[in-house]
């Protein structure tokens, strides 16, 4: 069997998900013997930018027309397109105020940061990949978990799709027998509605979950908001907190 052809791409973001791939130090050399990485600009200066790809891994959000064109071109040449990381899946931090009044005038924001010449930049409100092209599956996380990436590649090599948790961070936090930061310490922890898979990394360190993995499929957001309001957090405060990484919509 010929090796599957793979492309690894970054749109606008922090490059953290590509970095997680490069952080698979123990697996990297095995990995490149099993898959044929044809296009990976962050790691190689010799790339085939036109060939057909069995698998495209795309991180970052769409924040410009250029990003959107790049993404459409990747979609066209790829059998499977995977959104890699919270920005690609949900829009990420750059999207947190999308739709809010302040984002209405993007030119004004551009001018605030870049001065006069900011107006007219190729800059569009942050979009998740699925808002621009069809996405075959998502690996969420900010950044993604190394194990989830490796499991995805292993599944695909075997003609299968990987399975990821749908349950919230709380499930994993309970399994680690942590004290509850929300109920017992009154801290604004997003664990109840954030999708697990991180092994409750933050609450295990006594740090409240900030929701960096995006919403859990089976979370009960209404109930969480009610509990938090009872604890004295205001709705705008909650809304802002819950929108920080995933500003809404269904991935």
């Amino acid at each position: 069997m010929s090796k599957p052809t793979v492309g690894i791409f970054g749109l606008t973001g922090c490059a953290g998900d590509q970095l997680v791939i490069l952080n698979c130090e123990d697996q990297l050399l095995d990995l490149v013997s099993l898959i044929d990485i044809r296009d990976f600009l962050m790691a190689s200066s010799e790339n085939n930018q036109d060939c057909q790809l069995d698998l495209a891994l795309v991180e970052g959000a769409v924040l410009s027309n250029r990003d959107a064109e790049t993404l459409r071109a990747i979609r066209k040449r790829s059998k499977l397109l995977v959104a890699l990381g919270t920005c690609a899946v949900w829009g990420g931090v750059a999207a947190m105020n999308r739709g809010a009044d302040r984002d209405a005038d993007r030119d004004a924001l551009l001018e605030e940061v870049y001065g006069d010449i900011g107006r007219g930049y190729d800059s569009t409100p942050a979009q998740a990949l699925h808002e621009v092209v069809p996405v075959d599956f998502n690996i969420t996380g900010c950044p993604i978990e190394k194990e989830h990436f490796l499991a995805a590649v292993a599944s695909l090599l075997n003609g299968d799709l990987p399975l990821y948790p749908e349950y919230p961070v709380c499930t994993e936090c309970r399994m680690r027998e942590n004290n509850c930061l929300l109920i017992e310490r009154g801290l604004l922890c997003c664990g109840p509605i954030t999708v697990g898979g991180c092994d409750a990394r933050c609450p295990d360190l006594r740090v409240p979950c900030v929701g960096c993995r995006g919403p859990a499929g089976d979370a009960n957001a209404g109930s969480l908001v009610a509990v938090m309001e009872e604890m004295g957090f205001s709705r705008p405060q909650l809304a802002a907190r819950l929108r920080t990484f995933a500003p809404g919509g269904v991935a």
């Binding site: 749109l11 606008t12 973001g13 922090c14 490059a15 953290g16 998900d17 970095l19 959000a61 769409v62 924040l63 410009s64 250029r66 990003d67 990420g92 931090v93 750059a94 947190m96 105020n97 302040r102 924001l109 551009l110 605030e112 940061v113 870049y114 900011g118 930049y121 190729d122 800059s123 569009t124 942050a126 900010c142 950044p143 900030v210 960096c212 405060q237 802002a240 907190r241 920080t244």
Partner: peptide
Amino acid sequence: GARLLEPLLKGKRYDEVAPIVSRICS
């Protein structure tokens, strides 16, 4: 692409700031 993170920080509480600015660069 311009992520405009500095204006996005406005109004954020002090404990929310570091997790957001961390995302400037991995």
